[in-house]
Design a protein around this nucleic acid. Structure first.
Lengths: 224, 224
DNA sequence: GTTCCCGCAATGCTGCCGCAATGATGGGGC
DNA sequence: GCCCCATCATTGCGGCAGCATTGCGGGAAC
């Protein structure tokens, strides 16, 4: 289990390194953003511990590169800035967890365990299909950077379909994605949403189409 | 996006529900462990928000069941107990994140976003045969990653056969797999489905063939 | 007040599915 | 071997369930 530790303070780095090694992890230590970039191109890591305050910039800048190069590496951001706004920014920038200094070593280890438990190969935050980009984090669709606004239910349909792009989505699964337990439905309301979404996708020339499979469900397909 | 909220305090539950709904999530609310168990057996949720202090026990007890029944559901534990030991216990028991009350709604939403960014439920139940992959969870077949679309009945035949790959499936067993009790059939309808499925398997060059065994049933065979 | 989402119902249509007819195949009896 | 019959395979066809689409009205949000 190889971990990348991006941290400039020598004492902190030494303490973390030895602690992680005690748990049978291999630690690569990078004191700067530049070192970190070199490290991620040379090795594949099981997780990244990332300090925000580094001599050559904010650690968050590294996240995009990590996502691009090694898609699903779990990232835990370490920082002295414990304010709520910062914590939200950390998570929203794509990190998997966020820990404010000072923290107990034990807690870091627990969070690391939690993050490593997750299945390997995370999907990206933004799914692209045809000319559509769907931002799962902020739940919004766009076409060529222009926001593609949809009513709530149609957005839910699109999200469910795009998450399983090119694969069938059972009709029942779609219903569950769109409707609540206590939402009672006695009509073909779902069909109408699919239909209206179809029309909008076509009008916007989105480059995808919704394909219905009789008796089974739907699937989202790239247009050839 | 369907969320299960396990929380007994009515005010807290109401606040969370409305907040989540404002972000276009579909919320099932369970005030007790018993309700929660019922909910997870009835539905598949994209994530679970779990309070620890419930009228009928510690919320952590639910985690094992969630893992057993719906493998990869992200779980966020909510609790008033903010002590370190508790937080570590929460994460180590299999939760994906842990949030101590009181927490800012914004932070919960950010953590939920982080956790939902992960791939939607990897279904481990995929059977491969020849060039075909059959996803039991999603009831879909694919060839070389391309969806292999089939009408419902033919899909059911394929599923029954592929589940017993290389072994004979009694004609009666096939009938049960494809038809309900109250479906009355008086013809060779099953044969027609087998036949049509055969043709499609051959056309798609699926690498398997359906072998008929006179007086007994059928079996699915790899092509040499 | 105005806008627009959403559920409902009516309509037309597509293609699945059951049926039956015909052809093919295999196994047993002699 | 040869024939015969039971069983299976295949194909065309028609009915109808399920899907697609559209207009409408209630109601929520602003």
């Amino acid at each position: 289990m190889r971990i990348l530790l991006v941290e400039d303070e020598v004492e902190m780095a030494a303490a973390l390194s030895s602690a992680l090694r005690r748990y049978d992890m291999v630690v690569d230590h990078a004191p700067t953003l530049a070192d970190a970039e070199e490290a991620i191109s040379a090795e594949v890591h099981a997780a990244v511990l990332l300090d925000r305050q580094l001599p050559d910039g904010d650690g968050l800048k590294l996240i995009a590169k990590l996502r691009a190069r090694a898609g699903g590496v779990p990232i835990i951001v370490l920082t002295a800035r414990g304010e709520l706004a910062d914590r939200v920014a950390g998570l929203d920038s794509g990190a998997d967890d966020y820990l404010a200094k000072p923290f107990a070593l034990e807690e870091l280890l627990a969070r690391l365990r939690a993050v490593l438990r997750r299945p390997a190969g995370l999907s990206p935050d933004i799914i692209r299909a045809g000319r559509i980009a769907f931002d799962l984090g902020h739940r919004e669709a766009s076409i060529d950077g222009q926001p593609f606004e949809l009513p709530r239910r149609e957005l839910l349909v699109l999200e469910a379909l795009i998450r399983r792009m090119g694969r069938t989505v059972l009709r029942s699964a779609l219903e569950e994605a769109v409707y609540n337990f206590d939402d009672e439905i006695q009509s073909n309301a779902l069909d109408t949403h699919v239909s209206r979404l179809r029309r909008k996708l076509a009008e916007a020339d989105a480059g995808v189409e919704i394909h219905g499979i009789r008796g089974v469900g739907y699937l989202l397909k790239k247009l050839s």
